[in-house]
Simulated scan of single mutants.
Amino acid sequence: MKIVIFGGTGFVGLNLAEVLLARGHDVTLYDRKQLPAGAERSFADYRERLTVVQGEITDVERIDALVKQGFDAIVLGAAITAGDHLERTNTSSILEINVMAQMPILSTAVRRGVRRVVNLSSASAYGAAGQRYPVLDEETPCDPVSFYAISKFTSERSVARLAELRGGDFLNVRLSAVFGPWERIGKVRDTPSLQFQILADFARGEPALMPGPGIKDWIYAPDAAEAVAVLIEAERPRHRLYNISTGAPWSALQWGEAFAALHPGLECRLAAPGEKTVIELHGPDRAPLSVARMADEFGWRARFGRAESAAAMSAWWTQHKEAI
């Protein structure tokens, strides 16, 4: 298949590109940023099937000209992943990029005959419901609170409604707490995972002091990318919304301890009373996402748990320390 990923040189975009290329697809990455040097080296074997196009997600004419070249699938992955600081300073941009910028792309997809569009949403769309229900499945009523959560929920409903009106084959996926290779922070992403923050402390030669355990249904980025690839390739999905998660909560503290055990001299622990930590939890714990729909329909389940992802990330970190 020929697939274009908008936001393709970002964190999730690069993991998805790596999985899709390994599965034999041709991949185009559209993003305002260039391919990171480390990713360029890692993707060297796929140069003939990988294209990188620099451009703004709001450049309607450029995007239409790109999609006109002919694609089987589009992934909507360009987003401002906002914490409190970006919410206060970039409110309008969050809604513009996470919602409004999608509409011309979706219209272009219908007009140009793109077979499948997958919108990468977030577990944040559940919002305050995450504190009221023991498990969050795709039928759980959402109660988004932050502007980021509101924007992701609105993007889902907008994508679904446009599919009804225009007849597009559009899917929404809610990604749980993602961490792993190629994660980085920047002007459009100020909520790094706890695992990224732990590795940042390690990279500075400091112990990772946790303000709390950080319990979530964390999912390793290559697992999340594999699930999205399954949905891109699916002939006739039975649903229009899918959760992507491990479905099993565990603590980032335990992950950090498992990672540190593989590298003598590293330490991850809870901060003692009065001890300073630079690691931020970014919100309260929430209920895990149900993954029954992905498992029942496609037989997909995450391959990496806490220990497996710590070992895999250790191997990756050894080769890409400059990326953290």
Score class of each variant (00 low, 15 high):
K2S: 02
I3A: 01
I3T: 10
V4N: 03
I5T: 02
F6P: 10
F6M: 12
G7M: 14
G7I: 13
G8C: 07
G8H: 03
F11W: 11
N15A: 03
N15Q: 04
N15M: 01
L16Y: 00
L20V: 01
A22E: 07
G24V: 05
H25C: 00
H25A: 00
Y30I: 11
K33A: 08
A39G: 09
A39K: 06
Y46A: 03
Y46D: 03
R47L: 03
L50F: 02
G55E: 00
E61C: 08
E61S: 14
I63Q: 06
A65I: 06
K68W: 07
K68I: 02
D72A: 10
A79R: 15
A79M: 14
Q102G: 11
L106K: 08
S107H: 14
R112C: 09
R116D: 14
V118Q: 10
S124K: 05
A125T: 07
G127H: 10
A129Q: 05
A129V: 05
G130H: 06
G130W: 03
G130F: 01
R132E: 03
P134L: 07
V135C: 08
L136T: 04
D143K: 09
P144C: 08
V145C: 05
F147N: 08
A149P: 09
S151H: 10
F153S: 01
R157P: 02
S158L: 13
S158A: 13
S158M: 15
V159K: 04
A160I: 07
R161K: 14
L165Q: 11
D169N: 15
F170S: 06
N172R: 02
V173A: 01
S176G: 07
F179T: 00
F179P: 01
P181Q: 08
V188N: 09
S193M: 01
L194W: 05
L194P: 06
F196P: 06
Q197K: 09
Q197P: 09
P211G: 12
I215G: 02
I215R: 10
K216P: 00
K216V: 00
Y220R: 01
A224R: 01
L231A: 13
A234F: 14
R238S: 14
R238W: 13
S245F: 03
Q254D: 12
E257A: 15
A258I: 07
F259K: 11
L262H: 11
H263R: 12
H263F: 06
R269V: 07
L270G: 14
G274F: 08
V278G: 10
V278Y: 08
I279P: 07
L281M: 14
L281C: 12
G283C: 06
R286Q: 12
V291W: 04
A295I: 04
D296A: 11
E297S: 12
G299Y: 12
G299M: 12
W300F: 13
R303Y: 00
A311C: 13
A312K: 04
S314K: 06
T318W: 00
K321Y: 00
E322S: 11
